[in-house]
Design a protein around this nucleic acid. Structure first.
Lengths: 337, 337
DNA sequence: TACGGATGTGTGAACGTGCACACAGTAGGA
DNA sequence: TCCTACTGTGTGCACGTTCACACATCCGTA
């Protein structure tokens, strides 16, 4: 491994400008400097193309001005979940305003987990935003042990109540949109439930159940593994098979709803005439579909910026009230129901 | 801003184990250490929960074992382009194997540009992979001035031939799939051309023109701004208006093709019966559509890993042959044409 | 004259690490 | 006996930065 070329340091600048290191530092960071000295130093900086070494600054300051954005198991996310990108952009915007650099790290394999843990521990970042953590992810323990300022997006991690989180009320949102679907006169309402190994999946199903109350029929729930389009197709076929008279469907995601719409079209059912369909996420899927989806708006960008704020506040030394924060999820009523 | 708590250093470990710093260093980095010393040190490390400070290591070694993944103007990318995620994952996998941490930086605003430039200059990363650079992006100059090992994905940046790149042959691929469409007996073939402010957009149009040769008719080209679904809808409407007898369409992306399919369905045209449609990218759109798209396969994952390799080879001190690398783009023939 | 404050500059130490070097002991061969 | 090789350990320095401190000068005022 070849070492990179040596670069100019404050020392070189000081020598070139005929002053001391301290004065150069003062030009860069503020302090009393005479006009001549400042001019000479600025000229020298331009001449040799000096850029400060952040690794040295971080070492001394114990601050990197960087915050990690850790995306766990992003493989499926990048392909199916349009939210992760918006969350990232929201977080980046908030951090950018506070002059912090967001660096995102993807964790796919065991190997990644260990390397990212080292990276987080190593002082390269001042804090971390963690998205889509499984309850017992080893990364959580690393952050907890280091007491690294952090925030979770999604569900609170069980084993550490001291890490704040921001999320949405999946139960309440699912209940609300199911109720609205029911109130429009639908009698046989089913659900395509997905990702029941995650909190979000379980919660959406719970919301559906509570909305229907005694009218809930387990036979009308199709259980599919993922939040994606293909699962929607499969799930809808299952429901049509089990209950041909079905007239309402709550899909656990917009992608699933899109798949369901396609299946319904193939089966010759009109939407929203024969069957009313509602989704979840208000992602780009919602407006691409024909008809456009009635769905729960998930404020992805706000989730990202909120998480960023939670980290920034900790960096400022504020002590946060324990517990999490739920963002509102308005229902967007379009044409599919 | 509160300083983070002090953490254990090699010094503390040495004191706890009753040895010198050097011996601790040798336990961590390899060297001659007696069994007793090693045991004592390892016990001490576990006890105090020591983690090495990477900022200090980076300062000393002039190596961070991290490579930046710079996504320029990712806003539209995350929403419309399914490739960026795959490129990232491909790059991450390759870097992960070489035990390098990929850190991705998004650049959306002027503010971001400056901060990312500082970050890249600051020694936090050993190299950079740059995606979707405009020709004259200031980031390119920063990388060039620093002679930071880098690789571009997409088109070569004009002003610096010494930075390698990996991309696909947009002209050739577009020509190939247009020819194939023409050879299936279509007579009136149009194109929905997009993003003509980018090289990829221009090149795909050029390929289309050369494939048709003298049969090329400018009236059959609809020019839309973006690679997205909505543009496909608009573009197809335009083409149908101008030339109702159109029987073949080359869409500049799969998302556009999907939009075109929807418009054709609304217009009562069958696909591939009345009109043959081909796309570009082989993204998730391609298999979601009804009928599934015939398209050009873009090897996104390989683009990412190739770019990573180019950076890693420079880090190993290899001198690369100048110029770029084109990855093959096989045609995937499905049902839409 | 003496003092205090404001302005401007230089020096030494420290952040935590890795490596070169010095040094010590042991063993084997010429 | 001396030389070399190998194993094992401690010390000093350097990486590039910031900060505390010391020092120097000038000015207005008691």
């Amino acid at each position: 491994m070849s070492r990179p070329p040596k670069r100019a340091t404050v020392h070189d600048i000081a020598a070139a400008a005929g002053v001391s290191r301290g004065t150069v530092s003062r030009v860069l960071n503020g302090g009393y400097v005479s006009a001549e000295a400042r001019a000479a130093i600025e000229a020298a900086i331009l001449e040799v193309g000096y850029v400060p070494n952040n690794a040295a600054r971080t070492l001394k300051m114990r601050r990197s001005q960087a915050v990690a954005f850790v995306a766990l198991e992003p493989h499926s996310l990048f392909l199916d979940d349009p939210n992760i990108g918006s969350i990232m952009l929201g977080a980046n915007a908030a951090l950018s305003l506070a002059d912090h650099q967001m660096v995102s790290l993807v964790v796919e394999s065991q190997r990644d987990t260990e390397r990212v843990a080292r990276y987080l521990s190593g002082g390269f970042v001042d804090g971390a935003i963690v998205v889509s953590a499984r309850t017992r992810d080893p990364i959580i323990k690393v952050i907890s042990d280091l007491s690294l300022p952090a925030a979770f997006v999604g569900h609170p991690p069980e084993l550490s109540d001291n890490i704040p989180f921001v999320g949405i009320d999946n139960v309440g949102s699912a209940r609300a949109i199911t109720s609205r679907l029911a109130s429009s006169g639908r009698r046989r309402i089913g659900m395509i439930a997905a990702a029941l190994d995650r909190d979000s999946g379980i919660d959406r199903l719970t919301g559906f159940k509570t909305a229907l109350g005694t009218g809930y029929d387990p036979a009308l729930v199709a259980d599919v593994p993922h939040y994606d389009y293909g699962s929607g197709v499969k799930g809808m076929r299952l429901l049509l098979e089990r209950e041909p008279s079905i007239d309402g469907v709550f899909a656990a995601s917009d992608a699933i709803a899109a798949g369901a719409l396609e299946t319904l079209r193939e089966a010759g059912r009109s939407v929203p005439g024969d069957v009313g369909v509602v989704g979840f996420d208000d992602s780009t899927w919602a407006v691409r579909c024909q008809p456009q989806l009635s769905t729960v708006h998930q404020p992805a960008k706000e989730l990202g910026s909120c998480a960023a704020q939670l980290v920034l506040r900790q960096l400022r030394g504020e002590t946060l009230e324990p517990g999490g924060q739920m963002l509102p999820t308005p229902i967007v009523w379009r044409d599919s129901a």
